[in-house]
Design a protein around this nucleic acid. Sequence first.
DNA 1: GATGTATCCTTGTGTACGCAACTAATCTAG
DNA 2: CTAGATTAGTTGCGTACACAAGGATACATC
Lengths: 156, 156
Amino acid sequence: MSRQVLTTQAIELDAFARLMRAQSVLRRELEAEVLSPRGLTFNDFEALLHLAKAENQRLRRVDLSALLMLTPSGVTRLLDGLQAAGFVENKQCAGDARVTWAVLTDEGAQTLECVGAIHTEVLRGFFRGALDEQDIERLSELLEKLPGVGSGSCAG
Amino acid sequence: MSRQVLTTQAIELDAFARLMRAQSVLRRELEAEVLSPRGLTFNDFEALLHLAKAENQRLRRVDLSALLMLTPSGVTRLLDGLQAAGFVENKQCAGDARVTWAVLTDEGAQTLECVGAIHTEVLRGFFRGALDEQDIERLSELLEKLPGVGSGSCAG
DNA sequence: GATGTATCCTTGTGTACGCAACTAATCTAG
DNA sequence: CTAGATTAGTTGCGTACACAAGGATACATC
């Protein structure tokens, strides 16, 4: 006697479920194959990536906070670890004593270069195995339009 | 003197970054608008959702584990909370003494119905504000093809 | 200047979850 | 029937993160 509990079946619910699932699968694969073996967490890696892309390889904590979607406290603890590992250094900001720059070290850049290469390989395998180049771009474009995802949403 | 650290710029990297970001944004919005105010975590809600869709509103822990992409221990603790809240009950399996069914209670179903309605509203607003119906379906289809996302990957 | 407000960041504290180790039940082979 | 292997689940422990509160600096208004 299986009552039917859920009646609504909006297409948004499917898209949502698949989005969540895709993220979980991809994240776990990257952690298992690339990051954990090298002692990095997912956010460690993303932080290094953002620092590498940033001007002069440095970011304010509050910007990292927005980019990684972490709270300020999360960023503090995250950077604690990256500093202990020697991948990031603190640098006082000349014009504003409140801000501390997080600066990518050479060692951090080297690590990122190495890890990033494998990361990209895994990524390529993940997407290319299922979609052709056009579809990957289409997917990317569609995602970009979603609120908070596109370039209008944060410093870049 | 900004050295260029990252040279590779694969399209997969963009798709990846946006996928991660879209998930974060959406998850946080749902948590803030819908779930946290009602004392539910994201996985609480997803668990209830899966239970509601399942035959007889019940699932084995190991199946929930696969559906939510949690470890067995995570599922145990998750269900602890849902049982304490009265949304889920344990039921012994007649044929196999190892398994404990997690069964959705009436109260759980009611809660889900209420929360789910708002959830769907927020979801609709999120997607519809940026994409038309066709694009949402396209997005959903593209995501579905990714490894581990489509129906071939787990019980459904 | 003084005083209020906003911004940047850190420090307790609590929690969700992964990992490893374990128990218990089932299946498989001899 | 026994012995090992597989499967379902829990528990102890460590960690990444959110929340709330607080400290320090900057800015704005008088």
